[in-house]
Simulated assay, not measured.
Amino acid sequence: MTTEKLFQVNGVELCAETFGDPADPAVLLIHGGTASMLWWDAAFCTRLAGYGRYVIRYDQRDTGRSTTYPVGEPPYAMSDLAADAVGLLDALGVARAHVVAQSMSGGIGLILGVDHAPRVASMTFASTSPGDDDLPSPSGELPQIGTPDWGDPLDVEEYVVRSIEAESAGVFDEEAARALVRADMARVANYEAVMTNHYSMKFDGPQGGGFGALTMPVLVVHGDSDPYFSVAHGEAIRDAVPDGKLVVVAGAGHGIPEPLWDEFLAALAKHTEPS
């Protein structure tokens, strides 16, 4: 039985699910572009909650069961998605949370940490980049997957599964990936909007500064085989924040797969310990 709930936040509906005791320190998980909360696996959330954490995963706009918009017409900016995160914390009665921001949502995490600092107990940037022009480009070995036929669900499923494989750096479970994609597609009204709109929004940034303005503890977690953002991207974030810490996960690509969760979970548990 699902424990998902819909919340009215900033004039939109956001779908969220929680794990653990609300009295424990809260951890807000924000996945990357196009990814619903299902991409934070329920087993991962349960294990993190087992460390004595109140874990929150949610569908951002244009993913999962949350509000969606016509293809290519998202009327929001990245700062609006950050405001949604704050609004969700309000709806859940959470004053401060440890924020974990994955991939493209590193930008959302940065806005939260700079412009909404009183709400952020700590920041974790996973598989993301500061976006500096002098950092290495994505690997030239990434396969060219093309564009699916959005009217053919099987073709769309295959496209997303192959995309997951391309970013996995060899640690790839096809059965699990296919199950994730099918579950994801079953929860949305328009999967083309899911796969399009986050890349069509306005990419604004924080008003109060950059990475150097972060005042809370910052952890960076990065795979050593990430084909999109090499470890240099994670090192750049670590070096840009005061007293940043970097954990490089051997064998991980873009994201930390289930066989490598132990190191990620241990780092998160330590980073989010009550002070």
Rank of each mutant, 00 (worst) to 15 (best):
Thr3Arg: 15
Thr3Gln: 14
Glu4Gln: 14
Phe7Asp: 03
Phe7Trp: 04
Asn10Ser: 00
Leu14Ser: 07
Cys15Arg: 06
Ala16Leu: 02
Phe19Asp: 04
Pro22Gln: 09
Pro25Leu: 08
Ala26Asp: 02
Val27Thr: 08
Leu28Gln: 09
Leu29Arg: 08
Gly33Thr: 14
Gly33Trp: 15
Thr34Ser: 14
Ser36Phe: 04
Met37Pro: 03
Asp41Thr: 07
Ala42Ser: 14
Cys45Ser: 11
Cys45Trp: 02
Arg47Pro: 03
Gly50His: 09
Arg53Phe: 00
Tyr54Phe: 15
Tyr54Pro: 00
Arg57Pro: 00
Asp62Thr: 10
Thr63Gln: 05
Gly64Phe: 02
Gly64Ala: 02
Gly64Leu: 00
Thr67Trp: 00
Thr67Arg: 04
Pro70Ala: 06
Val71Glu: 09
Val71Ala: 03
Pro74Ile: 04
Pro75Leu: 01
Tyr76His: 10
Ala77Pro: 02
Met78Arg: 12
Ser79Phe: 08
Asp80Cys: 03
Asp80Tyr: 05
Ala85Glu: 03
Gly87Thr: 07
Asp90Gln: 10
Ala91Glu: 12
Val94Leu: 08
Val100Asn: 02
Ala101Ile: 09
Met104Arg: 11
Gly107Asn: 14
Gly109Lys: 03
Gly109Val: 06
Gly109Thr: 04
Leu112Cys: 05
Gly113Cys: 11
Ala117Gln: 11
Pro118Asn: 04
Pro118Tyr: 03
Val120Phe: 07
Val120Asn: 02
Ser122Ala: 13
Met123Arg: 06
Thr124Lys: 05
Ala126Met: 15
Ala126Gln: 13
Thr128Trp: 00
Ser137Arg: 15
Ser139Thr: 14
Leu142Gly: 09
Pro143Met: 08
Pro143Glu: 10
Pro143Thr: 11
Ile145Arg: 12
Thr147Gln: 13
Gly151Phe: 03
Glu157Thr: 13
Val160Trp: 00
Val160Thr: 05
Ser163Pro: 00
Glu165Tyr: 02
Ala169Ile: 01
Ala169Glu: 09
Gly170Ile: 08
Gly170Tyr: 07
Ala176Pro: 08
Ala177Leu: 06
Val181Arg: 01
Asp184Pro: 07
Met185Arg: 11
Val188Gly: 05
Ala189Gly: 15
Tyr191His: 13
Glu192His: 11
Met195Val: 04
Met195Asp: 01
Thr196Arg: 05
Gly205Thr: 12
Pro206Lys: 09
Pro206Tyr: 09
Gly208Trp: 07
Gly210Pro: 10
Gly212Phe: 09
Thr215Asn: 14
Met216Cys: 15
Pro217Arg: 04
Val218Lys: 03
Val218Gln: 02
His222Gly: 12
Gly223His: 04
Phe229Ser: 00
Ser230Asn: 08
His233Glu: 07
His233Cys: 10
Gly234Arg: 02
Glu235Met: 13
Ala236Ser: 13
Ala240Asp: 08
Val241Asn: 07
Pro242Asn: 12
Gly244Arg: 05
Gly244Leu: 07
Lys245Trp: 11
Leu246Pro: 10
Val247Asp: 01
Ala252Val: 11
Ala252Asp: 01
Gly255Pro: 01
Gly255Tyr: 04
Ile256Gly: 03
Pro259Tyr: 07
Leu260Tyr: 01
Ala266Trp: 13
Ala266Arg: 15
Ala267Phe: 08
Lys270Glu: 14
Thr272Ile: 05
Glu273His: 12
Pro274His: 13
